[in-house]
Design a protein around this nucleic acid. Structure first.
Lengths: 248, 248
DNA sequence: ACAATAGTGTCTATCAGACACTATAAC
DNA sequence: GTTATAGTGTCTGATAGACACTATTGT
Protein backbone atom coordinates (compact mmCIF):
# COMPACT_ATOMS: atom_id res chain seq x y z
CA UNK A 1 0.00 0.00 0.00
CA UNK A 2 1.15 3.47 -0.58
CA UNK A 3 1.81 4.18 2.99
CA UNK A 4 3.48 0.87 3.62
CA UNK A 5 3.79 -0.08 7.23
CA UNK A 6 6.17 -0.23 10.04
CA UNK A 7 8.45 2.30 11.63
CA UNK A 8 9.54 3.96 8.41
CA UNK A 9 6.15 5.57 7.99
CA UNK A 10 6.36 7.39 11.24
CA UNK A 11 9.84 8.73 10.77
CA UNK A 12 9.55 11.92 8.73
CA UNK A 13 13.08 11.53 7.45
CA UNK A 14 12.65 7.99 6.16
CA UNK A 15 11.05 8.73 2.82
CA UNK A 16 12.66 10.38 -0.20
CA UNK A 17 11.54 14.03 -0.41
CA UNK A 18 10.01 15.05 -3.74
CA UNK A 19 9.00 18.39 -5.11
CA UNK A 20 5.41 18.16 -6.33
CA UNK A 21 4.12 20.66 -8.84
CA UNK A 22 1.06 21.17 -10.98
CA UNK A 23 1.03 22.24 -14.62
CA UNK A 24 -2.06 23.33 -16.55
CA UNK A 25 -2.82 23.11 -20.21
CA UNK A 26 -5.50 25.75 -20.78
CA UNK A 27 -7.25 25.60 -24.14
CA UNK A 28 -9.23 28.43 -25.63
CA UNK A 29 -10.41 29.52 -29.05
CA UNK A 30 -9.47 32.94 -30.31
CA UNK A 31 -9.32 34.25 -33.86
CA UNK A 32 -10.68 30.94 -35.11
CA UNK A 33 -7.65 29.10 -33.76
CA UNK A 34 -7.18 26.69 -30.90
CA UNK A 35 -4.74 28.34 -28.53
CA UNK A 36 -2.95 27.73 -25.25
CA UNK A 37 -1.99 29.96 -22.35
CA UNK A 38 1.78 29.70 -21.99
CA UNK A 39 4.46 31.52 -20.06
CA UNK A 40 7.67 32.67 -21.65
CA UNK A 41 10.48 31.87 -19.25
CA UNK A 42 13.08 34.49 -18.46
CA UNK A 43 15.30 32.32 -16.31
CA UNK A 44 17.41 29.26 -17.11
CA UNK A 45 16.99 26.43 -17.70
CA UNK A 46 15.03 26.74 -20.94
CA UNK A 47 15.35 30.51 -20.87
CA UNK A 48 13.19 32.12 -23.57
CA UNK A 49 11.28 28.88 -24.11
CA UNK A 50 7.54 28.63 -23.46
CA UNK A 51 6.26 26.66 -20.51
CA UNK A 52 2.93 25.67 -19.01
CA UNK A 53 1.56 27.73 -16.15
CA UNK A 54 2.11 25.87 -12.90
CA UNK A 55 4.17 25.68 -9.76
CA UNK A 56 4.75 24.07 -6.42
CA UNK A 57 1.87 22.57 -4.51
CA UNK A 58 1.66 23.92 -0.98
CA UNK A 59 2.10 21.37 1.76
CA UNK A 60 -1.51 21.61 2.94
CA UNK A 61 -3.15 22.30 -0.40
CA UNK A 62 -5.33 20.10 -2.53
CA UNK A 63 -3.91 19.31 -5.97
CA UNK A 64 -6.80 20.82 -7.90
CA UNK A 65 -6.76 23.94 -5.74
CA UNK A 66 -3.06 24.31 -6.47
CA UNK A 67 -3.72 24.10 -10.19
CA UNK A 68 -6.35 26.83 -10.03
CA UNK A 69 -4.20 29.05 -7.83
CA UNK A 70 -1.09 28.76 -9.97
CA UNK A 71 -3.02 29.52 -13.12
CA UNK A 72 -4.38 32.75 -11.68
CA UNK A 73 -1.06 33.75 -10.16
CA UNK A 74 1.01 33.16 -13.25
CA UNK A 75 -1.30 34.49 -15.89
CA UNK A 76 -2.98 37.36 -14.08
CA UNK A 77 -6.28 36.05 -15.40
CA UNK A 78 -8.44 36.21 -12.31
CA UNK A 79 -11.31 34.06 -13.48
CA UNK A 80 -10.23 30.47 -13.19
CA UNK A 81 -10.70 28.02 -16.07
CA UNK A 82 -14.23 26.89 -16.82
CA UNK A 83 -13.54 23.19 -16.92
CA UNK A 84 -10.58 21.52 -15.24
CA UNK A 85 -9.65 17.85 -15.36
CA UNK A 86 -6.64 15.87 -14.29
CA UNK A 87 -4.55 14.63 -17.19
CA UNK A 88 -1.73 12.48 -15.84
CA UNK A 89 1.40 12.70 -13.75
CA UNK A 90 4.88 13.07 -15.19
CA UNK A 91 7.82 12.03 -13.07
CA UNK A 92 10.81 10.89 -15.11
CA UNK A 93 13.85 11.29 -12.84
CA UNK A 94 15.60 13.62 -15.28
CA UNK A 95 12.66 15.73 -16.40
CA UNK A 96 13.99 18.73 -14.50
CA UNK A 97 17.77 19.10 -14.62
CA UNK A 98 17.86 20.79 -11.23
CA UNK A 99 16.09 18.34 -8.98
CA UNK A 100 13.52 15.59 -8.74
CA UNK A 101 10.14 17.05 -9.56
CA UNK A 102 6.92 15.13 -10.03
CA UNK A 103 4.25 17.16 -11.74
CA UNK A 104 0.54 16.50 -11.79
CA UNK A 105 -0.70 17.83 -15.13
CA UNK A 106 -4.23 19.18 -15.70
CA UNK A 107 -6.07 20.33 -18.75
CA UNK A 108 -8.68 23.02 -18.84
CA UNK A 109 -10.99 24.94 -21.12
CA UNK A 110 -11.64 28.65 -20.93
CA UNK A 111 -14.08 30.84 -22.79
CA UNK A 112 -12.75 34.20 -23.85
CA UNK A 113 -9.41 34.42 -22.08
CA UNK A 114 -8.64 38.06 -21.36
CA UNK A 115 -5.17 39.14 -22.42
CA UNK A 116 -2.94 37.50 -19.86
CA UNK A 117 -0.26 39.38 -17.98
CA UNK A 118 2.60 37.94 -16.00
CA UNK A 119 1.38 37.79 -12.46
CA UNK A 120 4.68 36.85 -10.91
CA UNK A 121 8.27 37.21 -12.00
CA UNK A 122 7.99 33.98 -13.89
CA UNK A 123 7.99 35.56 -17.31
CA UNK A 124 5.17 36.85 -19.42
CA UNK A 125 2.03 35.01 -20.31
CA UNK A 126 0.48 34.88 -23.74
CA UNK A 127 -1.66 32.81 -26.07
CA UNK A 128 0.15 30.44 -28.41
CA UNK A 129 -1.42 28.41 -31.21
CA UNK A 130 -1.71 24.71 -30.49
CA UNK A 131 -0.61 23.99 -34.05
CA UNK A 132 2.63 25.86 -33.43
CA UNK A 133 3.33 23.58 -30.50
CA UNK A 134 2.27 20.37 -32.23
CA UNK A 135 4.33 21.09 -35.31
CA UNK A 136 7.33 22.24 -33.30
CA UNK A 137 7.39 25.86 -34.42
CA UNK A 138 7.69 26.95 -30.82
CA UNK A 139 10.00 25.38 -28.29
CA UNK A 140 8.58 24.22 -24.97
CA UNK A 141 10.49 23.77 -21.74
CA UNK A 142 10.98 20.45 -19.96
CA UNK A 143 8.56 17.73 -21.13
CA UNK A 144 5.81 20.27 -21.65
CA UNK A 145 5.40 19.54 -25.34
CA UNK A 146 4.53 15.95 -24.51
CA UNK A 147 2.08 17.15 -21.88
CA UNK A 148 0.37 19.38 -24.43
CA UNK A 149 0.11 16.51 -26.91
CA UNK A 150 -1.41 14.27 -24.25
CA UNK A 151 -3.84 17.01 -23.22
CA UNK A 152 -4.93 17.48 -26.80
CA UNK A 153 -5.66 13.76 -27.02
CA UNK A 154 -7.64 13.89 -23.80
CA UNK A 155 -9.64 16.87 -25.02
CA UNK A 156 -10.39 15.11 -28.29
CA UNK A 157 -11.67 12.06 -26.45
CA UNK A 158 -13.70 14.16 -24.06
CA UNK A 159 -15.44 15.93 -26.92
CA UNK A 160 -16.91 12.60 -27.94
CA UNK A 161 -18.40 11.85 -24.59
CA UNK A 162 -19.24 15.05 -22.76
CA UNK A 163 -20.62 18.53 -23.17
CA UNK A 164 -17.17 20.05 -22.68
CA UNK A 165 -17.26 21.78 -26.07
CA UNK A 166 -19.77 24.25 -24.71
CA UNK A 167 -17.17 25.44 -22.19
CA UNK A 168 -15.36 27.17 -25.02
CA UNK A 169 -18.19 29.71 -25.30
CA UNK A 170 -19.49 32.14 -22.77
CA UNK A 171 -23.13 33.10 -23.06
CA UNK A 172 -24.87 32.32 -26.29
CA UNK A 173 -23.26 30.52 -29.19
CA UNK A 174 -24.20 29.27 -32.61
CA UNK A 175 -24.19 25.61 -33.54
CA UNK A 176 -21.40 26.43 -35.97
CA UNK A 177 -19.34 27.81 -33.07
CA UNK A 178 -19.69 24.48 -31.38
CA UNK A 179 -18.80 22.71 -34.59
CA UNK A 180 -15.67 24.85 -34.83
CA UNK A 181 -14.48 23.40 -31.52
CA UNK A 182 -14.76 19.87 -32.83
CA UNK A 183 -13.13 20.74 -36.13
CA UNK A 184 -10.17 22.51 -34.55
CA UNK A 185 -9.50 19.81 -31.97
CA UNK A 186 -10.11 16.82 -34.21
CA UNK A 187 -8.33 18.38 -37.16
CA UNK A 188 -10.92 17.74 -39.84
CA UNK A 189 -14.17 19.26 -40.98
CA UNK A 190 -17.63 18.04 -40.11
CA UNK A 191 -20.70 18.21 -42.28
CA UNK A 192 -22.68 21.22 -40.98
CA UNK A 193 -26.16 19.80 -41.49
CA UNK A 194 -25.45 16.48 -39.84
CA UNK A 195 -23.65 18.16 -36.96
CA UNK A 196 -26.58 20.45 -36.32
CA UNK A 197 -29.06 17.59 -36.24
CA UNK A 198 -26.87 15.45 -34.01
CA UNK A 199 -26.15 18.13 -31.46
CA UNK A 200 -29.74 19.28 -31.20
CA UNK A 201 -30.98 15.73 -30.86
CA UNK A 202 -28.90 15.09 -27.75
CA UNK A 203 -30.92 15.99 -24.73
CA UNK A 204 -29.33 18.53 -22.41
CA UNK A 205 -26.50 19.48 -24.72
CA UNK A 206 -27.73 22.85 -25.99
CA UNK A 207 -30.82 24.92 -25.19
CA UNK A 208 -32.17 27.55 -27.60
CA UNK A 209 -32.22 31.10 -26.27
CA UNK A 210 -34.64 32.44 -28.86
CA UNK A 211 -32.13 35.05 -29.98
CA UNK A 212 -30.45 35.12 -33.39
CA UNK A 213 -27.05 36.18 -34.59
CA UNK A 214 -26.13 37.92 -37.81
CA UNK A 215 -23.16 36.73 -39.80
CA UNK A 216 -20.40 39.12 -40.85
CA UNK A 217 -20.20 37.78 -44.39
CA UNK A 218 -23.93 37.54 -44.84
CA UNK A 219 -25.84 34.31 -44.72
CA UNK A 220 -28.93 33.36 -42.85
CA UNK A 221 -28.85 34.47 -39.20
CA UNK A 222 -28.17 31.63 -36.79
CA UNK A 223 -30.11 30.72 -33.70
CA UNK A 224 -28.24 31.21 -30.46
CA UNK A 225 -27.95 28.50 -27.83
CA UNK A 226 -26.96 28.17 -24.21
CA UNK A 227 -25.72 25.27 -22.14
CA UNK A 228 -25.51 24.19 -18.57
CA UNK A 229 -22.31 25.50 -16.99
CA UNK A 230 -21.39 22.02 -15.76
CA UNK A 231 -19.79 19.50 -18.07
CA UNK A 232 -21.87 16.34 -18.21
CA UNK A 233 -21.53 13.02 -20.03
CA UNK A 234 -23.51 12.90 -23.26
CA UNK A 235 -26.48 10.58 -23.43
CA UNK A 236 -25.48 9.70 -26.98
CA UNK A 237 -21.88 10.12 -27.99
CA UNK A 238 -20.52 12.02 -30.94
CA UNK A 239 -18.24 9.42 -32.42
CA UNK A 240 -15.25 10.61 -34.35
CA UNK A 241 -14.42 8.53 -37.40
CA UNK A 242 -11.28 6.52 -36.98
CA UNK A 243 -8.69 6.90 -39.74
CA UNK A 244 -10.05 10.26 -40.70
CA UNK A 245 -7.78 12.33 -42.85
CA UNK A 246 -6.46 15.48 -41.24
CA UNK A 247 -6.93 18.66 -43.12
CA UNK A 248 -3.64 20.17 -44.40
CA UNK B 1 5.50 26.40 -15.04
CA UNK B 2 6.12 23.51 -12.79
CA UNK B 3 9.68 24.43 -12.12
CA UNK B 4 8.91 28.09 -11.71
CA UNK B 5 11.88 30.38 -11.85
CA UNK B 6 14.25 32.32 -9.72
CA UNK B 7 16.33 31.47 -6.73
CA UNK B 8 13.77 29.29 -4.99
CA UNK B 9 14.26 26.55 -7.54
CA UNK B 10 17.91 26.21 -6.74
CA UNK B 11 17.51 26.15 -3.02
CA UNK B 12 16.73 22.59 -2.03
CA UNK B 13 14.96 23.77 1.11
CA UNK B 14 12.62 26.15 -0.65
CA UNK B 15 9.97 23.75 -1.79
CA UNK B 16 7.56 21.77 0.37
CA UNK B 17 8.77 18.17 0.66
CA UNK B 18 6.20 15.53 -0.28
CA UNK B 19 6.23 11.80 0.03
CA UNK B 20 5.44 10.28 -3.36
CA UNK B 21 4.12 6.74 -3.57
CA UNK B 22 2.67 4.44 -6.19
CA UNK B 23 -0.34 2.18 -5.74
CA UNK B 24 -1.40 -0.55 -8.13
CA UNK B 25 -4.81 -2.00 -8.85
CA UNK B 26 -4.07 -5.42 -10.33
CA UNK B 27 -7.06 -7.13 -11.94
CA UNK B 28 -7.21 -10.81 -12.71
CA UNK B 29 -9.89 -13.42 -13.30
CA UNK B 30 -9.97 -16.51 -11.13
CA UNK B 31 -12.83 -18.88 -10.42
CA UNK B 32 -15.00 -16.97 -12.87
CA UNK B 33 -14.73 -13.83 -10.76
CA UNK B 34 -12.97 -10.53 -11.28
CA UNK B 35 -10.45 -10.23 -8.48
CA UNK B 36 -7.82 -7.86 -7.13
CA UNK B 37 -4.48 -8.38 -5.50
CA UNK B 38 -4.64 -6.71 -2.10
CA UNK B 39 -2.52 -6.63 1.01
CA UNK B 40 -3.94 -7.09 4.46
CA UNK B 41 -2.32 -4.51 6.74
CA UNK B 42 -0.99 -5.57 10.09
CA UNK B 43 -0.02 -2.12 11.33
CA UNK B 44 -2.04 0.97 12.12
CA UNK B 45 -3.56 3.02 10.69
CA UNK B 46 -6.23 0.86 9.09
CA UNK B 47 -4.88 -2.24 10.79
CA UNK B 48 -6.57 -5.38 9.44
CA UNK B 49 -7.99 -3.45 6.47
CA UNK B 50 -7.07 -4.31 2.91
CA UNK B 51 -4.86 -1.97 0.90
CA UNK B 52 -3.43 -1.74 -2.57
CA UNK B 53 0.11 -2.94 -3.16
CA UNK B 54 2.42 0.04 -3.43
CA UNK B 55 5.01 2.11 -1.65
CA UNK B 56 7.49 4.92 -1.79
CA UNK B 57 9.07 5.90 -5.07
CA UNK B 58 12.85 5.95 -4.85
CA UNK B 59 14.44 9.29 -5.47
CA UNK B 60 16.05 8.26 -8.76
CA UNK B 61 13.37 5.90 -9.94
CA UNK B 62 10.86 6.25 -12.73
CA UNK B 63 7.23 6.15 -11.61
CA UNK B 64 6.28 3.12 -13.69
CA UNK B 65 9.38 1.24 -12.56
CA UNK B 66 8.42 1.96 -8.96
CA UNK B 67 4.96 0.55 -9.56
CA UNK B 68 6.37 -2.67 -10.98
CA UNK B 69 8.95 -3.01 -8.23
CA UNK B 70 6.50 -2.47 -5.40
CA UNK B 71 4.07 -4.96 -6.83
CA UNK B 72 6.70 -7.68 -6.95
CA UNK B 73 8.09 -6.82 -3.52
CA UNK B 74 4.77 -6.72 -1.74
CA UNK B 75 3.06 -9.68 -3.32
CA UNK B 76 5.95 -12.04 -3.90
CA UNK B 77 4.64 -12.58 -7.43
CA UNK B 78 7.80 -12.35 -9.42
CA UNK B 79 6.30 -11.89 -12.87
CA UNK B 80 5.15 -8.32 -13.20
CA UNK B 81 1.70 -7.45 -14.49
CA UNK B 82 0.99 -8.00 -18.16
CA UNK B 83 -0.48 -4.60 -18.87
CA UNK B 84 0.17 -1.51 -16.79
CA UNK B 85 -1.34 1.94 -17.26
CA UNK B 86 -1.38 5.08 -15.22
CA UNK B 87 -4.76 5.82 -13.64
CA UNK B 88 -4.58 9.16 -11.87
CA UNK B 89 -2.93 10.84 -8.91
CA UNK B 90 -4.53 11.22 -5.51
CA UNK B 91 -3.27 13.89 -3.20
CA UNK B 92 -5.90 15.20 -0.80
CA UNK B 93 -4.01 16.74 2.11
CA UNK B 94 -5.64 14.44 4.65
CA UNK B 95 -5.62 11.21 2.72
CA UNK B 96 -2.95 9.77 5.02
CA UNK B 97 -3.38 10.75 8.67
CA UNK B 98 0.34 10.58 9.30
CA UNK B 99 1.78 12.89 6.69
CA UNK B 100 1.33 14.44 3.28
CA UNK B 101 1.48 11.70 0.70
CA UNK B 102 0.74 12.05 -2.99
CA UNK B 103 0.18 8.73 -4.67
CA UNK B 104 0.33 7.98 -8.37
CA UNK B 105 -2.16 5.17 -8.96
CA UNK B 106 -1.81 2.56 -11.71
CA UNK B 107 -4.06 -0.20 -12.92
CA UNK B 108 -2.89 -3.46 -14.36
CA UNK B 109 -4.07 -6.76 -15.74
CA UNK B 110 -2.49 -10.10 -14.99
CA UNK B 111 -3.20 -13.53 -16.40
CA UNK B 112 -3.14 -16.34 -13.90
CA UNK B 113 -1.80 -14.71 -10.77
CA UNK B 114 0.06 -17.32 -8.72
CA UNK B 115 -0.94 -17.42 -5.08
CA UNK B 116 0.61 -14.27 -3.66
CA UNK B 117 2.70 -14.25 -0.52
CA UNK B 118 3.70 -11.29 1.53
CA UNK B 119 7.12 -10.31 0.32
CA UNK B 120 7.82 -7.74 2.98
CA UNK B 121 6.53 -7.25 6.47
CA UNK B 122 3.67 -5.25 5.07
CA UNK B 123 1.05 -7.87 5.72
CA UNK B 124 -0.16 -10.74 3.64
CA UNK B 125 -1.25 -10.57 0.05
CA UNK B 126 -4.31 -12.27 -1.35
CA UNK B 127 -6.95 -12.08 -4.04
CA UNK B 128 -10.18 -10.27 -3.19
CA UNK B 129 -13.30 -10.13 -5.32
CA UNK B 130 -13.90 -6.77 -6.95
CA UNK B 131 -17.60 -7.08 -6.10
CA UNK B 132 -16.72 -7.33 -2.44
CA UNK B 133 -14.89 -4.03 -2.70
CA UNK B 134 -17.51 -2.28 -4.82
CA UNK B 135 -20.35 -3.30 -2.55
CA UNK B 136 -18.44 -2.50 0.59
CA UNK B 137 -18.21 -6.01 2.00
CA UNK B 138 -14.49 -5.52 2.62
CA UNK B 139 -12.96 -2.41 4.12
CA UNK B 140 -10.14 -0.72 2.28
CA UNK B 141 -7.52 1.56 3.81
CA UNK B 142 -7.07 5.25 2.99
CA UNK B 143 -8.84 6.30 -0.23
CA UNK B 144 -8.12 2.95 -1.83
CA UNK B 145 -11.76 2.08 -2.39
CA UNK B 146 -12.15 5.17 -4.55
CA UNK B 147 -9.00 4.25 -6.45
CA UNK B 148 -10.39 0.80 -7.15
CA UNK B 149 -13.69 2.26 -8.39
CA UNK B 150 -11.81 4.62 -10.69
CA UNK B 151 -9.62 1.80 -11.96
CA UNK B 152 -12.66 -0.31 -12.72
CA UNK B 153 -14.08 2.55 -14.76
CA UNK B 154 -10.82 2.93 -16.63
CA UNK B 155 -10.68 -0.78 -17.35
CA UNK B 156 -14.24 -0.73 -18.62
CA UNK B 157 -13.45 2.12 -20.98
CA UNK B 158 -10.27 0.50 -22.17
CA UNK B 159 -12.13 -2.71 -23.04
CA UNK B 160 -14.09 -0.74 -25.61
CA UNK B 161 -11.06 0.62 -27.38
CA UNK B 162 -8.14 -1.76 -27.02
CA UNK B 163 -7.13 -5.41 -27.00
CA UNK B 164 -6.53 -5.30 -23.25
CA UNK B 165 -9.07 -8.06 -22.59
CA UNK B 166 -6.65 -10.58 -24.06
CA UNK B 167 -4.18 -9.76 -21.28
CA UNK B 168 -6.40 -11.67 -18.87
CA UNK B 169 -5.46 -14.94 -20.55
CA UNK B 170 -2.11 -16.56 -20.92
CA UNK B 171 -1.66 -18.77 -23.94
CA UNK B 172 -4.73 -19.89 -25.78
CA UNK B 173 -8.22 -18.85 -24.86
CA UNK B 174 -11.75 -19.36 -26.11
CA UNK B 175 -13.91 -16.56 -27.41
CA UNK B 176 -16.18 -17.19 -24.46
CA UNK B 177 -13.24 -16.58 -22.11
CA UNK B 178 -12.79 -13.21 -23.69
CA UNK B 179 -16.50 -12.56 -23.43
CA UNK B 180 -16.32 -13.40 -19.74
CA UNK B 181 -13.88 -10.51 -19.27
CA UNK B 182 -16.30 -8.04 -20.78
CA UNK B 183 -19.25 -9.42 -18.88
CA UNK B 184 -17.49 -9.32 -15.52
CA UNK B 185 -16.12 -5.83 -15.96
CA UNK B 186 -19.17 -4.28 -17.57
CA UNK B 187 -21.57 -6.09 -15.27
CA UNK B 188 -24.00 -7.41 -17.84
CA UNK B 189 -24.17 -10.30 -20.27
CA UNK B 190 -23.39 -10.14 -23.95
CA UNK B 191 -25.01 -12.15 -26.69
CA UNK B 192 -22.52 -14.96 -27.44
CA UNK B 193 -23.11 -15.14 -31.18
CA UNK B 194 -22.83 -11.44 -31.79
CA UNK B 195 -19.75 -11.21 -29.60
CA UNK B 196 -18.03 -13.97 -31.48
CA UNK B 197 -18.66 -12.35 -34.84
CA UNK B 198 -17.60 -8.92 -33.66
CA UNK B 199 -14.35 -10.06 -32.06
CA UNK B 200 -13.31 -12.22 -34.98
CA UNK B 201 -14.09 -9.47 -37.45
CA UNK B 202 -11.68 -7.04 -35.85
CA UNK B 203 -8.30 -7.42 -37.47
CA UNK B 204 -5.44 -8.19 -35.12
CA UNK B 205 -7.57 -8.86 -32.07
CA UNK B 206 -7.46 -12.67 -31.94
CA UNK B 207 -5.62 -15.24 -34.05
CA UNK B 208 -6.79 -18.86 -34.27
CA UNK B 209 -4.31 -21.45 -33.04
CA UNK B 210 -5.93 -24.42 -34.73
CA UNK B 211 -6.37 -26.20 -31.40
CA UNK B 212 -9.69 -26.90 -29.74
CA UNK B 213 -10.81 -27.07 -26.15
CA UNK B 214 -13.30 -29.39 -24.53
CA UNK B 215 -15.91 -28.05 -22.16
CA UNK B 216 -16.33 -29.54 -18.69
CA UNK B 217 -20.13 -29.63 -18.94
CA UNK B 218 -20.23 -30.89 -22.46
CA UNK B 219 -21.04 -28.74 -25.40
CA UNK B 220 -19.30 -28.30 -28.69
CA UNK B 221 -15.52 -27.89 -28.29
CA UNK B 222 -14.35 -24.33 -28.79
CA UNK B 223 -11.59 -23.12 -31.03
CA UNK B 224 -8.61 -21.68 -29.19
CA UNK B 225 -7.15 -18.29 -30.02
CA UNK B 226 -4.01 -16.33 -29.32
CA UNK B 227 -3.26 -12.64 -29.28
CA UNK B 228 -0.33 -10.31 -29.59
CA UNK B 229 1.24 -9.72 -26.18
CA UNK B 230 1.07 -5.96 -26.65
CA UNK B 231 -2.14 -4.07 -26.03
CA UNK B 232 -3.16 -2.13 -29.11
CA UNK B 233 -6.04 0.18 -29.99
CA UNK B 234 -8.86 -1.62 -31.77
CA UNK B 235 -9.51 -0.70 -35.38
CA UNK B 236 -13.22 -0.93 -34.66
CA UNK B 237 -14.41 -0.42 -31.16
CA UNK B 238 -16.67 -2.63 -29.10
CA UNK B 239 -19.21 -0.13 -27.91
CA UNK B 240 -20.90 -0.80 -24.64
CA UNK B 241 -24.56 0.13 -24.53
CA UNK B 242 -25.25 3.15 -22.40
CA UNK B 243 -27.97 2.73 -19.77
CA UNK B 244 -27.53 -1.01 -19.73
CA UNK B 245 -29.07 -2.76 -16.80
CA UNK B 246 -26.60 -4.40 -14.50
CA UNK B 247 -27.21 -8.00 -13.65
CA UNK B 248 -28.24 -8.57 -10.04
C1' DA C 1 -28.70 38.93 -59.29
C1' DC C 2 -24.72 36.10 -56.44
C1' DA C 3 -22.28 34.54 -52.37
C1' DA C 4 -22.50 32.87 -47.87
C1' DT C 5 -24.24 30.62 -43.90
C1' DA C 6 -28.36 28.16 -41.47
C1' DG C 7 -31.11 24.57 -41.35
C1' DT C 8 -34.18 20.45 -43.32
C1' DG C 9 -35.21 16.29 -46.13
C1' DT C 10 -33.87 12.09 -47.66
C1' DC C 11 -31.25 8.22 -49.18
C1' DT C 12 -27.91 4.64 -48.22
C1' DA C 13 -24.45 1.76 -46.13
C1' DT C 14 -23.19 0.08 -41.88
C1' DC C 15 -23.77 -2.04 -37.65
C1' DA C 16 -25.56 -3.64 -33.11
C1' DG C 17 -28.80 -6.53 -31.17
C1' DA C 18 -32.37 -10.22 -31.26
C1' DC C 19 -33.05 -14.64 -32.13
C1' DA C 20 -33.53 -18.91 -34.87
C1' DC C 21 -30.85 -22.46 -36.28
C1' DT C 22 -27.01 -25.86 -36.86
C1' DA C 23 -22.76 -28.34 -34.81
C1' DT C 24 -20.59 -31.20 -31.45
C1' DA C 25 -19.54 -32.47 -27.12
C1' DA C 26 -21.06 -34.88 -22.05
C1' DC C 27 -24.44 -37.38 -19.76
C1' DG D 1 -32.60 -39.03 -26.17
C1' DT D 2 -31.46 -34.16 -23.09
C1' DT D 3 -28.46 -30.50 -21.85
C1' DA D 4 -24.80 -27.46 -22.71
C1' DT D 5 -21.76 -24.69 -25.33
C1' DA D 6 -19.90 -23.10 -30.07
C1' DG D 7 -20.71 -20.95 -34.01
C1' DT D 8 -23.65 -19.25 -38.33
C1' DG D 9 -27.65 -17.08 -40.77
C1' DT D 10 -30.69 -13.60 -41.05
C1' DC D 11 -33.71 -9.93 -39.97
C1' DT D 12 -34.56 -5.33 -38.12
C1' DG D 13 -34.05 -0.81 -36.18
C1' DA D 14 -30.83 2.90 -35.32
C1' DT D 15 -27.53 5.87 -37.00
C1' DA D 16 -23.64 8.31 -39.49
C1' DG D 17 -22.47 10.39 -43.56
C1' DA D 18 -23.39 12.22 -48.26
C1' DC D 19 -25.71 15.47 -50.52
C1' DA D 20 -29.69 17.96 -52.48
C1' DC D 21 -32.57 21.40 -51.25
C1' DT D 22 -34.79 25.48 -48.92
C1' DA D 23 -34.25 29.83 -45.92
C1' DT D 24 -32.37 34.26 -44.97
C1' DT D 25 -29.01 37.45 -44.79
C1' DG D 26 -25.06 40.90 -47.10
C1' DT D 27 -23.15 42.78 -51.25
Amino acid sequence: MSESTGAESYDPGAYPPFAVTVDIVVFTIRDDRLQLVLIQRNEPPFQRAWALPGGFVHIDEDLEAAARREFVEETGVDAGPTHLAQLRTYGAPDRDPRMRVVTVAWWAVMAEVPDPEAGTDAGYADLVGVDDVVEGRVELAFDHRQIVLDALDALGDELENSTVATSFWKEAFRISDLRKVYELVWGFELEPGNFQRKVRSIEGFVEPTGARSLNPDGGRPAQLFMSEPTVRPLSSSLRRERDRKKKP
